[in-house]
Nucleic acid binder design. Structure first.
Lengths: 129, 129
DNA sequence: CAAGATTGACTGCTCAATCTTT
DNA sequence: AAAGATTGAGCAGTCAATCTTG
């Protein structure tokens, strides 16, 4: 499991980095935001979504913000919290990079497995939660 | 897959670190050496075994060497190469840590899966090679 | 020149400490 | 207190450059 994950990740990550300068985690963040109400989400909720530490998410947000892909916004219901909000540029890049990444996943992952394999894998991984 | 791997790894790694000061990769290295002829193996072969870069393996070896768990030895057939050779202390620690780690894996992984699940998972992952 | 190993610089991640607001 | 966020320190990993030997 370690080895399969390590090699798969390495390949997917390097393609994504060379084409869009994004890490898998950064893309996942963008994807979550794109699917969120008003394209925004609190940082700590985002961290829970993607199973990363809050501090990691904060730094990924720094990088994405510097590139103009998202903006931090104060949260009106709770002054402690801050939203990460996807910009138009961010949304555009998210769509493009996700399409490209999906093709990579298709090639490197989905195409090698049957429908049954995939379901079984899903079940199995869910049992490890 | 990302999430399952991330969380599983985090837990196993933290237990191993607190009990033995070893990372998963370091333990895997020790294990390979313990199973190797004369308890030694060339660094670059080791890297291939565990699917890590040679430079990473070199640095893990540095750390293990500082702790007296392995020694670097010149390779007699090829002066360029160097062996990582497990010391007695290294072998002892490898056995102990592996037993402990296996218990963790049993608990966190094996016990949650049936025999069938496990075989299917193995097949599936093998297809991703 | 190619292969084995090491080193430096960079990224990704976590944890602990801190600051602010509830 | 406790929760949201940021920041600093440190480990794990990669790639590119270098040195040495085949």
């Amino acid at each position: 499991l370690q080895h399969a994950h390590r090699e798969l990740t390495r390949e997917l990550e390097s393609r994504l980095a060379e084409r869009y300068g994004l890490s898998l985690s950064a893309l996942e963040l963008l994807g979550r935001l794109a699917a969120s109400d008003r394209r925004r989400r609190r940082l700590s909720w985002l961290a829970g979504d993607v199973k990363l530490s809050v501090s990691r998410v904060s730094r990924i947000a720094d990088a994405l913000e510097r590139r103009g892909l998202l903006e931090r916004q104060p949260c009106e219901e709770d002054t402690r919290a801050t939203y990460a909000c996807l910009t138009d540029a961010g949304l555009a890049l998210a769509r493009e990079a996700q399409a490209s990444h999906l093709a990579d996943v298709q090639d490197r992952f989905l195409n090698r497995l049957s429908e049954r394999d995939l379901c079984a894998l899903g079940e199995t991984l869910a049992r490890l939660r």
